[in-house]
Simulated scan of single mutants.
Amino acid sequence: MGPDNKFVTRVFNGGLAGNWERGGRFYRGWWQQIDKEDRCKIYINDKPTLGVDFKAFHPNLLSNELGVKLSGDPYDLGKLVLPEVITTKDRQRDYVKLLVLMGINADSDKKAYQAFCNNNRKDKLGQSLTDLQLAKLLKGYIDKHPQFDGVLNTGQALRLMNIDSQIANMVLDHFTNKNIPVLCIHDSFIIEYDKEPELRRILDQATHQVTNSIIDHDIKNVRNTHKGKVTGNIKGYEEPVVVEYHTPIRIDPTSQYLDRKAKFNKWLELSGNYLSE
């Protein structure tokens, strides 16, 4: 990864012709180009980080626009729709999620089904599902969430991406103005571990400002879980109460990292001396 990958730039679809209302997400950061399993290993200023992302962001956003607040897991249909083919609810949930996201991107049923089957060449079961079976699966989703009837498979993605890019822009502006590094991956964000409360607060503020609603978000990192007793003069805590809390999973820096860090600190030292002359 070169130095150019340290910065992101907004990419719009259509530009002036689209009135800057299509796309607009941030791209080109090196952290966007690595496996998601490796993102949890990113350190900023020698501190572990965590990733916060919105839950089912585009379905929630679209449903809010339609006047219905989604609750629970929007991809869990509660029953098997194709029990003779898909035998577990977990597998069905994965397929429903993929099908809905493809439906938000595609502008026709046929394109959504083609995109679904082309998504993972190693998934033989997914590839074997026919258009009729996928239509039945999608109908099961719409039966549970009737507000989406006639809305999916109509090419909503670029418009919704523009909305999440506005939220991301506000988040980046807030932390950049405070000289706090934050890395965005579209509708998810990586920040120093102790900045989580502030990130969540700004996410809520930005989301409400752009959409006039709030969408839940969650932490993706695997963390150490602990339990301890808390007591105090707050109502409900007069007697010790067992609470759960988390700490980050720390990793030891590699020799390559320590070497790059030493070179960077030397560069800062020399740059400071040069600028002061």
Rank of each mutant, 00 (worst) to 15 (best):
M1A: 00
P3D: 10
N5E: 14
V8Q: 04
V8H: 06
R10M: 02
R10T: 02
V11P: 06
F12R: 02
F12Q: 08
F12H: 04
F12G: 08
G15N: 11
L16C: 07
N19K: 05
W20T: 00
E21H: 10
E21D: 13
G24T: 07
R28I: 10
G29N: 07
Q32T: 00
Q32A: 05
Q33F: 00
I34R: 03
I34A: 07
E37M: 07
E37D: 10
D38G: 01
R39W: 13
I42H: 09
Y43Q: 13
I44Y: 01
N45A: 10
D46P: 01
D46L: 03
K47L: 13
V52S: 06
D53I: 00
F54S: 04
K55T: 14
K55I: 14
F57K: 12
H58E: 12
S63K: 03
E65D: 14
L66K: 08
G67K: 02
D73E: 12
P74D: 00
P74G: 03
L80H: 03
V81F: 04
Y95A: 02
K97S: 06
K97P: 08
L98Q: 09
V100Y: 03
L101M: 09
L101P: 03
I104S: 01
I104F: 02
I104D: 01
A106Q: 04
A106L: 06
A106D: 07
A106F: 09
A112S: 08
A112Q: 07
Q114M: 06
A115P: 05
N118R: 14
K124W: 08
K124H: 15
K124Y: 06
G126V: 07
D131N: 11
L132N: 13
Q133M: 05
Q133L: 04
L134I: 00
A135V: 01
K136L: 05
L137I: 06
G140C: 00
K144C: 12
D149G: 06
G150P: 05
L152H: 11
N153A: 08
G155W: 01
Q156W: 06
A157P: 04
L158Q: 15
R159W: 03
R159L: 09
L160D: 04
M161Q: 14
M161D: 00
N162G: 09
N162D: 05
M170K: 15
M170V: 06
V171Y: 05
D173Y: 11
H174C: 12
F175S: 05
I180D: 06
I180F: 00
V182T: 04
H186F: 07
D187I: 00
S188P: 10
I190H: 03
R200K: 13
R201H: 14
I202D: 08
L203R: 10
L203C: 08
D204V: 09
H208Y: 15
T211W: 04
N212Y: 04
I219K: 01
V222S: 09
V222M: 10
N224L: 10
N224C: 10
N224P: 04
K229V: 02
Y237F: 15
E239Y: 09
P240K: 01
V241W: 04
E244V: 15
Y245R: 05
H246N: 08
R250Y: 08
D252Y: 09
D252C: 11
P253A: 05
Y257F: 15
L258R: 09
D259V: 07
D259N: 12
K263A: 13
K263F: 06
F264L: 15
K266D: 12
L270M: 12
S271R: 13
G272S: 02
L275P: 05
S276Q: 08
